[in-house]
């Protein structure tokens, strides 16, 4: 698989480390009433879709950036690659 890095261009996926579902960026609020339950769902449960999947890749052997990659888990086709930083900023985080 080739991941088209937004800053570095096309890179082989073996330079990256796959870190799982992109929902891991959205850590629950530890102060919430049902924080324990939310953290259980966050840490252990997954949608695991067959088809379009948003996932985190870490460019371990490159610029060490975190990417949000949208990929089809049935065909391995990658439809978009974003910097995780940009995704978080778009949500109003990490100003």
């Amino acid at each position: 698989m080739i991941i088209n890095h937004p800053l570095l261009g096309p890179r082989d996926s073996s330079e990256f480390y796959h870190m799982g579902d992109a929902v891991l960026m959205d850590r629950p609020d530890p102060e919430a009433e049902n924080a324990a339950e939310q953290f259980h769902d966050y840490a252990y449960l997954r949608d695991n879709p067959a088809g379009e999947y948003r996932e985190l890749w870490y460019h371990e052997q490159g610029d060490r950036s975190w990417l949000v990659v949208t990929r089809d888990t049935l065909t391995h086709e990658i439809s978009s690659v974003e910097l995780a930083r940009e995704v978080a900023r778009a949500q109003g985080r990490s100003k």
């Binding site: 579902d21 695991n48 067959a50 065909t75």
Partner: peptide, 13 residues
Amino acid sequence: DKYNTYAQRGNLP
């Protein structure tokens, strides 16, 4: 292969 997939094939690395 270490990434989520439902394809019954892997990659070269």
